[in-house]
Design a protein around this nucleic acid. Structure first.
Lengths: 168, 168
DNA sequence: TTAAACTTTCAAAACTTTTTGAAAGTTTAA
DNA sequence: TTAAACTTTCAAAAAGTTTTGAAAGTTTAA
């Protein structure tokens, strides 16, 4: 396969993966494009390469900055803004985990905590089943949360070494 | 909070979480409803409680069975089909991880493997950047895959005990 | 100041996904 | 057989999401 085709394929795949993971397709594609660009790109260049509108490009770039995945850069003597992506895959994974934890896990845990407080008669099957599911899921969510927290604070090397060895 | 309100809230939250995680809202809501039902429910009951159409209910129930999250049950002497959810949270997490691994991770790894094979001149920054990102992401994806595989094969208890201790 | 170069906004349009509901299909009991 | 009870299908409609592009806003250099 030739480099240009490979690049296109990479952008396409990353976009698809993104849309399965709550990051929208264009956002993931712009990210992919910046990931494989040795130099920072302008809005104009991104619009052209991915054939997207100015408005879309601007919004997407802003979102990506919000996710901590890309940064603005200014070249001395130039008015234009350049964008570049952090190329460190471990950082990317960490950022995504961090954001999703904040955006999705935290609100759910808040609701579950509230729902765990509901009281009732344990001999009432309606209550008992509700209560068991809610408490179990709450425990699971808290466990995941704690795990993420620890992972985010941990150092990079254990990851590349393979966490999985620990479960053997 | 009163039990009925709590149930509604649980179904709503689970639905929201589902839609952020690639499982559609109705599917997650039906699952939530079955999770907190002490007894199996019929299509009719589910339609009524969640105010969804017959077609939608039928499709959703089929999908949930496909994900391994619920099962059909027959009551002796009755024509109707009843549905019930596995209430074991660890099983639920395992099933979801298993399915997503198969549906999403595997195809990506396949593409990345292909893209890793692309050759070029390492002094060409275009190639070098592309290659580094692709290989790094490939390593990450494989690592996640391996971790999932091990987790899925592992026993339940280490999870409830808290994996996170291992990262301390 | 001014105007050129650039960025941001947002209502409307395009596209995608989900849901509906009526019709077709299947199973069972009599 | 038949018909009632139930399940499945799928084209069209509704709902939800993303994208466009023109207009408004901002910054900078002169």
């Amino acid at each position: 396969m030739e480099l240009e085709e490979a690049k296109r394929k990479f952008i396409e795949s990353w976009g698809k993966l993104g849309s399965e993971w709550g990051i929208n397709r264009t956002m993931a594609q712009v990210h992919a494009l910046l990931l494989i660009s040795p130099d920072p790109l302008t809005t104009e260049e991104i619009m052209e390469t991915l054939r997207i509108s100015r408005g879309n490009a601007n919004m997407t770039l802003r979102d990506l900055i919000g996710w901590g995945l890309i940064e603005k850069q200014h070249k001395p003597g130039e008015r234009k803004e350049y964008f570049f992506a952090d190329k460190d895959v471990w950082n990317i994974a960490k950022q995504v985990a961090k954001e999703r934890r904040k955006r999705e896990l935290e609100p759910v845990i808040k609701v579950l905590d509230e729902l765990s407080k509901v009281t009732g008669d344990d001999r009432d099957p309606e209550f008992a089943t509700f209560n068991k599911s809610v408490t179990d899921i709450n425990k699971l969510a808290k466990n995941v949360d704690k795990t993420l927290e620890t992972m985010l604070g941990a150092e990079e090397n254990w990851f590349w070494g393979g966490i999985f060895k620990m479960f053997k």
